Amino acid sequence: MSVLDAPLDKPSEPSGDSEAEEAYRKPRRAWSPRGFVAALCALGIGGLAGTAVFLGVAARLERTPQWAYDLLDRVQTNDWTDRWVWVTGVVAAVVGLWLLLLAWTPGRRHLLPLRPVAPDMTAFMTRRTAGNLLRHTALASTGVLDARVRVTRRKAVLRVDYHFRDPDELHEELEEALRDRADSLLLARVPVVDVRLQPASGR
């Protein structure tokens, strides 16, 4: 076998960093800074801490205000089954669950991450933009009068009003066109297209 007839080996691609590959595979969702919530929490914690310091200094100087004695007496003498205790506990529990929910969820649900082009770069597309692009694709089909789109992270539901078309043929045509359009959006998670036809007479 001559040198020209010998099979050529494919050039080995340089193995990238594992973190870079992970960033390419799994782009992060957009996290909301939640500045208002952080400021509210800081204000509340600062107020409680300042009150505690004030009462401590006042007690050392033997100038504790009367309202502090009244509050301490109310806490010690009231039973835990009192209504105001229950209301305070429920409010505190609801606020705590709300803060935990904000801490565990990224927020900015209207932003959909795109496929990353670099490890340190992330781009986003709004759900409204993705829905408009899918809607225009559906309106380009013959017989389609109107289309309403709802886009989530995993699914795109289109309710299409049509006339003068075979529903099976139109459904197949729309699914193929919308799947191609969804792939062309370059979203990190391509939504599943769900087409629901409705005849114009049923509007």
Rank of each mutant, 00 (worst) to 15 (best):
L71C: 06
D82S: 15
A103C: 14
L158R: 03
G44W: 13
D70N: 10
R25D: 10
W67K: 07
A68Q: 03
L48V: 15
L99N: 01
R154D: 11
P199M: 06
A200C: 10
P119N: 10
Y69D: 07
A188D: 10
V117H: 05
A138G: 02
V3Y: 12
A58W: 06
V75H: 13
L40E: 15
D82M: 13
D79G: 04
R25N: 09
S184A: 13
V195R: 02
L158N: 02
A177P: 03
W67C: 09
D120R: 14
Q66R: 09
D161V: 13
L40A: 15
A93N: 02
L72K: 09
H110E: 10
L100E: 01
D146N: 14
K10Y: 04
D194I: 07
H136D: 15
D9T: 06
S32Q: 14
D120N: 14
S12D: 09
A30P: 06
L112P: 01
M1W: 08
T129W: 00
L187D: 12
A23T: 03
V87I: 15
M125S: 13
Y24N: 02
G50K: 00
E13S: 08
V87K: 10
W104V: 15
D194E: 13
V190W: 00
L139G: 07
S2M: 07
V192G: 03
H110N: 06
G89D: 13
G56N: 10
P27C: 02
V160P: 03
D161W: 05
A6T: 13
T129Q: 07
D79I: 02
